[in-house]
Amino acid sequence: MPKIKTLLAGIAGVLLFSGILLPHGAGAETTATKSQFLNIAHRGASGYAPENTIAAFDKAVTMKADYFEVDVQRSKDGHLVILHDNTVDRTTDGTGYIGDLTLEEIKQLDAGSWFGEEFAGEPIPTLNEVLDRYRSKNIGILIELKSPELYPGIEAEVALLLAQKKLDKRTDKIIVQSFNHDVMKNYHRLQPTIPVGVLVSYTPEGVSDEQLRQFSTYADYVNPNQRLVNHDLVQRVHANGMKITPYTIRAESEARQMMAAGVDGVITDFPELGRLR
């Protein structure tokens, strides 16, 4: 734990020296600058290409999504890589935990054949590669910190990478989210210029007013399981100054239900569903 605290302190020092780390809330934008209904391609256009690959992200660009979502984890040797599961078993021809594999080992895996022969050999990309490839394209990137509790300090590493690439103030380009709300609090402290989203899993009790109040102190988006969404929740999210983009929409009926409730966007495997309005 002391090593982790030292890492965070060191990165925070770099951000502060660069003029990037501001006091809590100072200079932060309360919402992304895009005003239209947000059509967010889940792990890329993952209904049409293997999830979290360049093929899926390129398809999202072709289909004119506003953002595509990526899941970020860390390799054994410290590289930020894009994969949803904690293991490579489901979506590649390999086995093992991401955190136990080096980047070289990860890059040898086929992340496309499971989806279709035409995607054979599709590699697992790094966050660095994704940022470089799409930074000048007309699409934003929703970065999810996947299981950050497995990778202590990953939020600071992402913040530093965005700063190095001068994307730290691109509120129209980058959103960062996670199910780990403590990590997102820390991310907002490190980089308050980037919009933050909190992912919320389904629970029968729903989302309380107190939870929303707490979220509003550091988050710009509440991104819940679609089963939680109704007009009341949308109104309460908006009353707390945040936007709401539920996940994961896979059918026209689901998309229309979310739109009728008044959401600000949808996270979907099929980007055409975000254009039904």
Score class of each variant (00 low, 15 high):
72 V>N: 10
72 V>W: 08
73 Q>E: 13
80 L>R: 04
80 L>V: 03
80 L>D: 11
85 D>S: 02
88 V>F: 00
89 D>K: 08
89 D>P: 09
93 D>S: 13
95 T>F: 10
96 G>M: 09
96 G>I: 06
96 G>E: 07
101 L>E: 01
101 L>A: 03
101 L>C: 05
102 T>V: 02
103 L>K: 08
106 I>P: 02
106 I>S: 03
107 K>A: 01
109 L>P: 10
111 A>D: 01
112 G>K: 06
113 S>L: 15
114 W>G: 05
116 G>K: 11
117 E>R: 14
118 E>P: 02
119 F>S: 08
119 F>Q: 07
119 F>A: 03
119 F>E: 11
122 E>S: 14
125 P>N: 10
125 P>L: 06
125 P>K: 06
126 T>I: 05
127 L>I: 02
129 E>V: 02
129 E>I: 00
129 E>N: 10
131 L>R: 05
132 D>F: 02
134 Y>G: 04
134 Y>T: 02
134 Y>M: 03
135 R>W: 02
135 R>E: 13
136 S>H: 13
137 K>T: 11
137 K>F: 03
137 K>Q: 14
138 N>Y: 00
138 N>T: 06
140 G>A: 07
141 I>M: 11
143 I>C: 08
144 E>V: 04
144 E>H: 03
147 S>T: 06
150 L>Q: 14
150 L>C: 09
152 P>I: 06
152 P>H: 02
153 G>N: 04
154 I>V: 13
154 I>K: 05
155 E>R: 04
157 E>Y: 04
157 E>Q: 15
158 V>Q: 10
160 L>V: 05
161 L>K: 14
162 L>K: 08
164 Q>W: 10
170 R>F: 02
170 R>C: 04
171 T>E: 12
171 T>I: 00
172 D>C: 07
174 I>M: 09
175 I>T: 05
177 Q>M: 12
177 Q>K: 12
178 S>C: 11
179 F>N: 09
179 F>A: 09
180 N>F: 00
180 N>G: 11
181 H>E: 12
182 D>P: 01
183 V>W: 01
187 Y>V: 05
187 Y>F: 15
189 R>I: 08
189 R>Y: 12
189 R>Q: 14
190 L>T: 05
191 Q>M: 15
192 P>Q: 01
194 I>M: 10
195 P>T: 06
197 G>F: 11
203 T>H: 13
203 T>M: 13
204 P>I: 02
204 P>F: 07
207 V>N: 12
208 S>F: 10
209 D>V: 06
211 Q>K: 10
212 L>D: 04
214 Q>Y: 08
214 Q>V: 14
